[in-house]
Design a protein around this nucleic acid. Structure first.
Lengths: 142, 142
DNA sequence: ACTAATGCAACTGCAAAAGTTACGATTGAT
DNA sequence: ATCAATCGTAACTTTTGCAGTTGCATTAGT
């Protein structure tokens, strides 16, 4: 797996689930499909569960499924659930305070980055999980 | 230094330069200001030079300065110059082709991520370097 | 010549994330 | 009651990207 794999894995899995909302999938199935490890899957999907996007059941017939309708889940929900912060945050800045202009400039840079982050999330809110699912999907018959 | 430090360093430096467009700065000066290392500065600013945003001169009175007016440089220019790809790109996908739905879904996920990346760049294009510079700047007198 | 600067390559060190292993807890099937 | 399947989680190793560092060749002004 590469970079940004968490977001990619999450979108991938949710999109699969959107195709067959009733089906329960195990972390092993999902990991095989995604070419990764069950524990990694549980880590990532655990975040989505905390955010109320997925349900998981332990035990023999356990596994993962959508906690709500796929068309009510946006990319922003997923992004925020993983608490990835793609854009924001500059440095700690503690050691830079000796320069008179640094304080203002640092905070201004941080401000701009936060602003961009916020508008990115707004943009993500416009796309639903169902929009990610391919229209011709031989696998789930949709 | 922390995460996103390249983008942060670049914005920081360009913003400084926007305040005093004529002044030539050495990588040592810049590194001191930013609390980092001259070589790191040259690495990052070298990318900006390749993109035509900065000029550098070797030799005794050498250093760095803006290659064009600060208000003609957008955050998108900087972002693309550093070729950071914050959002995009899923995995290599070679090992996933055994699943019938994977091909379509993978490309669809990649498509969505590319789309997000593109809209991020669009958003970045709306902010100029001069917008980052604090209005009250005791350092450069602007 | 000497000095001050960039350019660049090679290396180290570190931190974050993936990957792995192991084991306990829970649930359903038999 | 036992067994097998599954999640939950902790601990560890491996990988990777990047900052940081060192060293040196090159360039340019004095």
């Amino acid at each position: 797996m590469k970079r940004n794999s968490r977001l990619s894995l999450a979108l991938h899995t949710l999109s699969h689930m959107a195709g067959e909302p009733g089906r329960v999938r195990t972390s092993v199935d999902i990991a095989d499909h995604a070419g990764t490890n069950p524990v990694v899957v549980r880590r990532v999907l655990g975040k989505l569960r905390e955010a109320g996007l997925l349900l998981s059941e332990k035990g023999h017939a356990g596994g993962w499924q959508l906690a709500k309708a796929a068309d009510s889940i946006t990319l922003a929900d997923v992004y925020l659930a993983l608490d990835e912060r793609l854009v924001a945050r500059s440095r700690d800045n503690a050691e830079l305070s000796n320069c008179s202009v640094e304080t203002g400039l640092q905070s201004r840079v941080a401000e701009v980055l936060e602003d961009i982050e916020a508008s990115l999330v707004e943009r993500l809110r416009e796309t639903k999980i169902t929009d990610v699912h391919p229209s011709t999907c031989s696998y789930c018959g949709s």
